[in-house]
């Protein structure tokens, strides 16, 4: 197939602008999978169209955005509600005997029916128990999923922060004897907020916790405790510092650093 001729025919523009019929569209989508040139031409025209549109906007009245957000405001939040299982009520029929022998037959049928009911009821209870178990499992899966989503968002946010040009990065290598450990400080030069990424620190022993210190005018200032956090841990706001260090302290922190338990230190460059 002569892809160049096909590309130049204008079929790609017709497709992207939504004017091809179903057969033409299907054919073009098939060609896109077979010929990278054609796929490339489609993408290129889409980009050209978008760029042209973005460079020649006509801005709508500013009130529209307010109205739009007002009408959608309930849709931005979407807590997950679990619907309670609906109970099925059993239908009750009155049996009215109108003839003696039919009544006798009815009683026999009633007994059989009663037995059937008992049997079906047992089956229903089993199914219902299984259903409840599945519901519980579904809830826990959903919770798990939300946890993972929250973590992904945390990581995404952390990544955005790390690549912020205002972020000053301070590497903190391990002290002699603890060379295997290190952590990185991210210091927002605008807001002065300090974040730490504990790249490699051993699990603290029971009752102990790592504490971050900032050296300010030769004095060690408490910069916060390193807790359990995904990605970056937010520490205290430190307006100025020449150095950061991490020591292992008793849980909750100390007012002065225990120099013998110093794990990491790094100068602000």
């Amino acid at each position: 197939m002569n892809t160049q001729e096909y590309i130049e025919s204008g079929i790609i523009e017709t497709y992207v602008l939504g004017m091809t019929d179903a057969i033409e569209s299907a054919e073009l989508e098939q060609y896109c999978r077979e010929y990278p040139d054609i796929k490339l031409a489609v993408t290129a025209f889409e980009a050209t169209l978008e760029q042209h549109a973005l460079l020649n906007p006509i801005n709508p009245p500013s009130t529209i955005k307010v109205q739009l957000f007002e009408s959608l405001k309930d849709e931005f939040v979407h807590p997950v509600f679990m619907s309670a299982p609906t109970k099925q009520s059993a239908k009750v029929f009155d049996i009215k005997p109108f003839l003696k022998y039919i009544a006798a037959a009815s009683i026999i049928l009633l007994v059989i029916s009663g037995a059937m009911n008992l049997y079906l009821y047992t089956k229903l209870s089993n199914s219902s128990a299984q259903y409840q178990a599945i519901l519980v499992e579904k809830t826990s899966l959903q919770a798990n999923n939300q946890l993972i989503q929250a973590k992904a968002l945390d990581l995404f946010n952390s990544m955005q922060m790390m690549t912020d040009p205002n972020m000053l990065k301070v590497s903190m290598p391990g002290m002699p004897g603890k060379e295997k450990n290190y952590a990185t400080i991210f210091w927002d030069t605008k807001s002065k907020d300090v974040y730490i990424l504990p790249n490699k620190l051993p699990q603290p022993t029971l009752g102990k916790q790592y504490q971050l210190w900032a050296m300010v005018d030769g004095k060690a200032v408490d910069a916060g405790m390193i807790g359990d956090c995904a990605g970056l841990c937010k520490m205290k706001n430190i307006p100025s510092a020449t150095m950061f260090a991490v020591t292992l302290e008793k849980k909750g922190g100390s007012s002065i650093p225990t120099i013998t338990e110093m794990y990491l230190a790094g100068k602000v460059s």
Partner: peptide, 18 residues
Amino acid sequence: RNEQAYSYLYDHYSGALF
């Protein structure tokens, strides 16, 4: 269903679509 992303979408594309 992120509101900020939607707000960005509106700011970025409403002129082109309008």
